[in-house]
Design a binder for these strands. Structure first.
Lengths: 240, 240
DNA sequence: TTGGAAGCGAGAGCACTGCTCTCATTCTCC
DNA sequence: GGAGAATGAGAGCAGTGCTCTCGCTTCCAA
């Protein structure tokens, strides 16, 4: 597969470092993530890991990309195995995001929580994986619009942002008009707001006895606000 | 005002520590907040500050309460000086939250970002200040409902959470039914989701050219989803 | 008035962190 | 085989949170 044995060993060590870092992240959080502890667990002296990772921030970047990839994979899988109707796909996306966030709170916090101060995630390494979920969401809504299955009163989009929506539409090859895009972006931030509130405990530790029910309600509400309706069989059979 | 000179001096020192900590928080963030640096700036050796603050976490608690208080004060002031109509009050609340968050990103992150791992904010010290904004929001919506100015299609609340809504209604002395409370909670998380996305840069650094316009759109949409409408003069004149 | 107690700051010290530098070893490729 | 790159070990620097002991000052009460 890989080239020289040395290259393969290097790749293996890098993957080991990522794995150990991921575990540590879950145990102590991003702020307390320690390169020395990773080195200890790797069975190596601390200076040795600097042969593989330039500094602590680069290890964070590794973990950010790793987390984005896993989240994206799980969301993709959930949406793929959902019925083709837009409502089901949206619900599957939201459910997968929430499930991953609840299962991996530290890694979710790394992606969607407070940015680590002084650390700027390098765009060229993170955007590809980092934009997967919102891109998929946009396409779900856009497909529904193309199929004429969007029955919502979105309200007009802000005209001052028309240029921004045009860029978004072009970059993602969308067809939906500004009001749909604006509503989609708002639903996106609302979804992650609800997930963050649950994962970060903003609702209070025991305010809501049934987090699943709260999530289902939130998602149903967001779907309705987007204009997604449960549609008939002709849509579930796809456009092909 | 205070008791003995020693007590007054202690209080002054504690307030100095809070102030220095607040500044440091803005410069380096919560993760890198250093008690030793605070001591240096205070002109004192590091062990001395342990006479006032048990540990780093307690300093964080001090700053959390301080931030909640300032945010609550500014939101209160904004809502108080807004017209009495619910839509104006809601818009003022959202604008004040966002303005404070944009102005004080590190302190906003301390309150609504990822929780600092291993640090649990002591409820007895933080809940009083920490629940002010959501309490005010609930009352704005509840007042509108009492006045008959809520014209929304909220959709039914999840019945499994009826008990939770009853507790909320009792604790906050509200009158609105479950569907209104459920929609209010969802709007609350959606508002902070949008603010967090803006403050934490989730939208992308330059995706939206006019953050103000995006905020205005989001707030208008949330208000509409809550059923808040711009109402006539009879409401602006109050209920007295 | 005069003790004792409590509060306070300084300093040393421990264990930890990120990161750098030097040095010896090992692997790779010409 | 030999030049050179890659690798790991170790020492070291500056910083961190936190503890402990030591004196000094303030306060309060007998």
């Amino acid at each position: 597969m890989a080239g020289t044995p040395r290259e393969r060993a290097r790749e293996q060590t890098l993957s080991d470092i990522t794995l150990i870092g991921r575990r540590q992240l879950g145990e102590v959080g991003a702020a307390a993530l320690s390169l020395r502890a990773v080195a200890r667990e790797l069975g190596v002296v601390s200076s040795a890991v600097y042969r593989y990772v330039a500094n602590r921030d680069e290890l964070l970047t590794l973990l950010v990309v790793d987390a984005y990839r896993e989240l994206g994979d799980e969301v993709d899988a959930a949406v793929d195995s959902a019925p083709q109707a837009a409502l089901g796909r949206f619900t599957a996306l939201a459910g997968a995001v929430r499930a991953w966030a609840v299962r991996e709170p530290s890694r979710y916090a790394l992606l969607y929580g407070s940015p680590v101060p002084g650390y700027e995630a390098p765009a060229e390494q993170t955007t590809t994986q980092g934009t997967r979920v919102v891109t998929l969401l946009a396409h779900i809504v856009d497909d529904a619009w193309r199929a004429g299955n969007l029955h919502g009163a979105a309200g007009p989009a802000p005209t001052r942002l028309a240029g921004d929506y045009r860029v978004i539409r072009d970059q993602l090859s969308l067809a939906a008009p500004d009001d749909v895009l604006a509503a989609t972006v708002q639903a996106w931030s609302a979804l992650f707001g609800a997930v963050s509130f649950e994962v970060f405990g903003q609702y209070g530790t025991d305010t809501f006895s049934d987090p699943d029910a709260l999530h289902d309600y939130t998602v149903a509400r967001l779907a309705a606000q987007l204009g997604l309706r449960d549609v008939g069989v002709q849509d579930a059979q796809g456009t092909a």
